[in-house]
Write a protein that binds this DNA or RNA. Structure first.
Length: 411
RNA sequence: GGCGACGUGGCCGAGUGGCUAGGCAGAGGUCUGCAAAACCUCGUACACCGGUUCAAAUCCGGUCGUCGCCUCCA
């Protein structure tokens, strides 16, 4: 409702007109596309995804309450503005001060009392796309009120974590705080987790510069797990610069973990039910501890990844030894990978899937490996290499081990 | 101009007063039919200029640079 472009046009209305669609069809298309991307990146869906246009009464009620408490005023034109002078803490999140906000930039032709006052309700011109009846005439909600009204409805007057991007800290997050806290007198959110900006090859990603990479584009080029690994390899507050060099490095780092993980799963198939190697459990516990400490330190995911890399080196060393390791300890390693790299960081998939589930494909692959082993024994390396290349083409990588066995994994 | 984030070895990126971050790339080695994977060894980096301190990437002051915001875009 009123996502205006620089030209003053309504973004959704413009798109809808160009495509001969209902505005809500446009909204629905982008919403679905967004969820597709998030699903692909293994981002969990929210329990509630409220829409501003579905919460007009709540926003009107909140605006009315702010007027009653003297935090907002109605203008001749039928607009309602929040009076920032009644909330002296305005700017506390981004470190701005009201007296500095007056600045050079004087507001032109406005009924605002203070330049930093912001709209809670706007009157609508007849041609405006979406408008609703209100105590102040036909109009639509201001651009910050929806967040406060909806979060208070579903999460209460105070909630734990407010996400978002650093670029919206001012003015948007400040306005949310002002509206909500002026009304309730309670803290709006306990923690703010705001992410740094995203650039590409060092410059701003924008359609006009033609350097835009969508999530769908990125997924065509890199595995979802590698993209997650890339994002998590920097702290959430730091700026992220997307580049092929960085993505490729991230993919290589991610594959290192994945290869180690798959090797453990592979070994589990033939491991004895013995307690061989059980001393490693204490080592695993250390890594779990170190991982937790990193995550407890303001989600230090780069540090957490470093812990997994360290763990992988030690696991590889363990598996390189000639002594066999019992299935129970391999299982413990595997479940730690799933817990830390899977459940927490989300870049180790639950199931490793080619076309069929890997487990189902087993007998066929095992047979080919057997044939190839026979060929290698007869020094028929052209056949052996042909089998390896063919499997490689369908995503299965064979690696010969020193003891004569062949380990296979998914690429 | 104001506010904020950031500036670490070839690249990505942790680290907030003394102690090896980690990954990628690169070099050498072990292993190996080849390949792949793995393991071992190798890099004395912290934008710049001053200052504090026995000791600074880490604290203080200043400078420069990058990005974001300062708009009725949420």
């Amino acid at each position: 409702m009123g996502h205006l472009l620089d030209t003053g046009e309504d973004r959704i209305l413009k798109k809808a007109g160009a495509l001969h669609l209902e505005p809500m069809e446009v909204v629905e298309t982008y919403t679905r596309s967004y969820f597709e991307d998030m699903d692909a990146l293994n981002v969990l869906r929210p329990d509630i995804s409220p829409r501003a246009s579905g919460h007009i009464p709540e926003q009107i009620a909140m605006t009315r309450a702010l007027i009653e408490k003297g935090h907002a005023y109605v203008t001749e034109a039928g607009d309602v503005y929040f009076d920032v002078t009644t909330f002296p803490e305005y700017g506390k999140l981004s470190g701005r001060r009201l007296d500095e906000l007056k600045g050079e930039r004087e507001i032109i032709a406005s009924e605002k009392r203070h330049p930093a006052d912001f709209a809670l309700w706007r009157h609508a011109e007849p041609e405006h796309l979406m408008q609703w009846d209100s105590p102040w005439g036909k109009g639509f909600p201001g651009w910050h009120i929806e967040c406060s009204a909806m979060s208070m409805k579903y999460l209460g007057e105070t909630f734990d974590i407010h996400g978002g991007g650093l670029e919206n800290q001012f003015p948007h997050n400040e306005c949310e705080i002002a509206q909500a806290e002026a009304l309730t007198g309670k803290p709006f959110a306990r923690y703010w987790i705001l992410t740094g900006s995203l650039t590409i090859n060092g410059e701003k990603m924008s359609k006009s510069l033609g350097n835009f990479v969508s999530v769908k584009d990125a997924l065509k080029q890199y595995p979802a797990g590698a993209i997650r690994y890339f994002i998590l390899s920097g702290h959430y507050r730091s700026p992220v610069d997307y580049s092929d060099e960085a993505l490729e490095a991230a993919q290589a780092g991610w594959e290192r973990l994945m290869i180690g993980y798959q090797r453990v799963r592979y070994e589990m198939k033939s491991a004895p039910e013995s307690d061989a190697g059980s001393g490693f459990e204490a080592v695993l516990e250390e890594y779990r501890q170190r991982f937790r400490e990193a995550m407890d330190d303001d989600f230090n995911t780069p540090q957490a990844i470093a812990v997994l890399q360290d763990m992988t080196r030690e696991v590889n060393t363990l598996l390189d030894q000639s002594e066999t390791v019992g299935r129970p300890i391999l299982g413990a390693i595997e479940s730690l990978y799933r817990e830390l790299g899977g459940q927490v960081l989300g870049f180790i998939p639950d199931r490793l899937v080619i076309r069929a589930d890997l487990e189902e494909a087993d007998p066929l692959i095992e047979l080919l490996i057997k044939i190839r082993a026979e060929a290698r024994k007869n020094r028929d390396f052209s056949l052996a290499d042909a089998i390896r290349d063919a499997l490689n083409r369908v995503g299965i990588v064979l690696e010969d081990r020193p003891d004569g066995t062949t380990f296979y994994r998914l690429r």
